[in-house]
Amino acid sequence: MSILEVENLSVSFKQYTDGFKEMNHKVISSLNVTLEAGEILAVVGASGSGKSLLAHAILGLLPSNANVSGTIKYKGEELTPTRQSGLRGKEIALVPQSVNYLDPLMRVGSQVRTSVENGDAVAAQRKVFERYRLGKEVENMYPFQLSGGMARRTLLSTAMVSDAKVIIADEPTPGLDPIVIKEALDNFREFADSGCAVMLITHDIESALQIADKIAVFYAGTTIEVASIENFVGKGEEIRHPYTKALWRALPQNEFIPIPGSQPHPSSLPPGCLFAPRCEMATPECRQAPPEMRELRDGMVRCIHAT
């Protein structure tokens, strides 16, 4: 059974521009993602594609001017704001992006301890610090004294000491050296193998491919393809969506061909397929209505031409 299901999620922000004109920025539109127990799902997309907002929406941490529609289910039951606040930190844990997510005036040891739900908080914190090779002196440091790598390992620790069943990791790897990346990713693998689930949000398709089971590709606030990592081989013949193919082919070790153009801004989304303006395969039909997500060869794709 899916541990976490996101169906038809849309998030928009109300904004006032030019004084009184009200604008609705749709940053996530009809997004579908499912997360199975024991699995790592990598959510891959360029910056500004709404990846972090997805994490915040699942946890119910969007700002008050956000408008959310669609359903999110946890263990088969719909997540209401009350349920979200009960699950936060206990069942679903977040690993945030940067050291800014740590309280600047609190020693990091005590910040990790606040995440411990059961048992001896100090012992749990020391154990996890030892596991991440954070020295004994680190627990008495303030966030500004940590190096980038130490900060990320501290943030990882907060998720590991909680008894969460789902970890949502928002860009946990940038700035880490390859050894630590490997280690962090192995930790996620270990965590997933123990029956939990990990949603790995990243823009780095390469490190995602190292450990993930499935990859969901984000483009302009929606998922355009969900594929198993086995599909990412050769010249990408098994990849379904033209954008994913282009991403794959843009990698230096593949063909190193960049994609022309850029992702549309949430305030000026095209009416039809969101990728149509940059797509080589686009036909007039693509520009009329947004394509539905459909199943194809054990994966999902949002493209009428995909085979």
Binding site: L59, L61, S85, R88, G89, N100, Y101, L102
Partner: peptide
């Protein structure tokens, strides 16, 4: 701020949240 968002993500809320992170800052 980001750190209050993260504190909420860890399940802190209401007065505890204010006491731990608000007052201090």
């Amino acid at each position: 701020s980001d750190y209050v968002l993260f504190a909420r993500a860890r399940g802190e809320q209401g007065f505890v949240l204010f006491w731990r992170h608000g007052l201090r800052n």
